[in-house]
């Protein structure tokens, strides 16, 4: 597992490229998780307000970011 050793070394690296790449990866992970969980909440009938409170953001913000995506199973009503 020389790769693991390399990565362990990277963890303590002062090279900004390494650290910033980790931040980018974390942001991508965050976005994916947020998409998944917001869609799930909507499928379960949560309002945008409820989702916004849970995420500690504004209702407008969460709506703007996610409403256009329209996950499956929402808006079954007329």
């Amino acid at each position: 597992m020389s790769e693991a050793t390399e990565l362990a070394a990277a963890a303590s690296s002062t090279d900004p490229r390494v650290g910033l790449r980790a931040v980018l990866a974390l942001r991508r992970l965050l976005e994916s998780l947020e998409t998944l969980q917001v869609d799930n909440a909507r499928r379960q009938g949560w309002s945008w307000q409820e989702i916004a409170v849970a995420l500690e953001v504004t209702r407008q913000g969460v709506h703007k970011k996610h409403a256009s995506r329209r996950p499956a199973g929402t808006r079954r009503e007329a």
Binding site: L7, V18, R21, A25, R28, L29
Partner: peptide
């Protein structure tokens, strides 16, 4: 999230 992301996350313990 590709392999490069996986590697970068592993470098911070994720």
């Amino acid at each position: 999230l590709g392999q490069a992301d996986a590697d970068a996350l592993l470098s911070i313990g994720i």
